[in-house]
Amino acid sequence: MEVSVKRGIKIVLFFLVILIASACGMDPMDLDHLSSQRADTESGLYETVKLSIENGASHVRSDVSIEIKFPRSLQRGAGNEKNIFLLDIADVESSTSSDERDGLFAGICDLKLSVPAAVSTYDRINFAIRPYDELKEGAVYALCILDSIVYQDGDTFPGMVASFRTMLPRRVKIAMTSPSDGEAGVSVSRAIKIVFDGMVDLSILEDENFEIFSEEGDYVNGALSYRENSPIANIAFEPDEELLPGTRYFARISGAFEDVDGECLAGRSGDGDCNKFIYEWSFVTAN
């Protein structure tokens, strides 16, 4: 039974090494010693620790709070931010050399690179770690639980590493334009329209957010309107005068737009503000 437990631990950790290494561009051999370190334990405690996320999960919310359940009670103060923490794998790869990683637990668990987070418990068995800020979208993270943790009975926890990837939220995008990009023979009196594939908060829409201009750089004046409370967002631009025949025009929409759930169409910057969403296309009017 002891042999099968050890072998199971080796298999689990081998695939964990490959997942973390491939996710951040590391050579899997850089973390090969992770298997031998964890296989040294005689207790099989790695398998009995329960997490609220699956190891290797790929659709974890960026505002995640991870629950950790140890098999036995820890000593008072044993589980804290110094031995239970999260790492952005990309930060580890860019900030440490392979030689430096050799000196770290599991080759990656550098407390200095940890994501700011709070660790809490109510009974010294059940713990939770919650980042102070939302994690990056579509990034790979490692949960490090170090081997410096001691159980109430004096046994030392063997340590473990689990990894996961945060999900990329579905963002509303432009479904179609009229005229379409590159369309020729467009009527000089035709309205210009944009249709999104979902609901967008267009309350910030102003004339400066939508521009029509010719290849020569002459801007077109007109009336901008949008349909409110529609399952899909629609924007229409009616030129004040007919467009010039046989002329290439460019249309551009830009702005820090959000969908009705508050998700930025172009993602968020480091300070939390919406990035500017920009979409441009062109068409040619009929002669």
Rank of each mutant, 00 (worst) to 15 (best):
R165I: 11
P28C: 08
V284E: 12
A251E: 08
L113P: 02
D207N: 09
E47P: 05
E241F: 10
G246Y: 08
I212N: 01
K173E: 15
D147P: 07
R165P: 05
P169E: 14
V5A: 10
G182L: 07
C144V: 15
T41K: 05
G267S: 10
T48A: 14
L113A: 09
L205H: 02
G246K: 03
Y46R: 04
G25T: 06
S269G: 11
N209Q: 02
N55V: 05
P158M: 01
D218H: 07
S97I: 08
E81K: 06
E216C: 01
V195S: 09
I145T: 14
P179L: 13
N287A: 11
I84A: 04
T166L: 00
L16I: 01
A117I: 02
G246R: 02
A57T: 06
L243Y: 10
V60G: 01
A236R: 07
E100W: 02
E67L: 02
P169T: 14
E2A: 15
I53A: 02
V49H: 13
G222I: 02
F196K: 02
C144F: 14
G79Q: 03
F277D: 00
G270R: 14
S36W: 12
A175L: 15
F196D: 02
L202R: 01
D240T: 09
F85C: 06
Q75I: 10
I212D: 00
A266K: 03
L224C: 04
S4Y: 12
G44A: 08
E263N: 03
L143K: 08
K82P: 02
D240I: 07
K276M: 07
A184Q: 13
A142E: 10
L111K: 06
D261P: 04
M29N: 13
I129N: 01
D63Y: 00
F15K: 07
S214R: 03
G103N: 12
E54T: 12
F237T: 07
G56H: 06
V115N: 00
C274A: 09
G222F: 04
Y151L: 15
S35K: 07
D32L: 09
D201F: 04
S97Q: 04
G185P: 01
H59D: 11
R165M: 10
E208V: 03
G77R: 09
A106Q: 03
E241P: 00
L45I: 13
G8V: 07
E81L: 07
T41Q: 14
P245V: 09
T156E: 10
V12S: 11
G246L: 05
S36C: 06
L265V: 05
C264E: 02
Y132A: 10
G25Y: 02
E2L: 14
Y46I: 15
A139L: 04
